[in-house]
């Protein structure tokens, strides 16, 4: 990741200050760049939705019944 080319992005001072405070408070990030990169990467990754249809829920309940949970 360090070898990747870096580019500058301009944001408003108030947002920058808020982000800097958040990065400092977390204790996890050494600077604002690192924090912003982490957040944006997470944002891009997304993730699959959880939740079941009624048919799917019934299927899992059948599995649980077969083991005596229900």
């Amino acid at each position: 990741m360090l070898s990747e080319e870096r580019v500058a992005v301009y944001i408003s001072r108030s947002v920058y200050d808020a982000v800097r405070r958040m990065a400092e408070e977390s204790g996890e990030f050494s600077n604002v760049d690192e924090f912003v990169e982490f957040v944006l990467r997470e944002f891009l990754e997304g993730g699959e939705e959880a939740g079941y249809t009624p048919e799917e829920e019934e299927k899992i309940k059948e599995r649980l019944r077969s083991l005596g949970y229900l």
């Binding site: 997470e42 993730g47 699959e48 249809t53 899992i60 599995r63």
Partner: peptide
Amino acid sequence: YPPAVFRGVMLSDWLYPRRAVY
């Protein structure tokens, strides 16, 4: 499954209604 915060490979567990790969 499904993972929310995850890097790597995850295969669905038996409590998920269908086989899935992330």
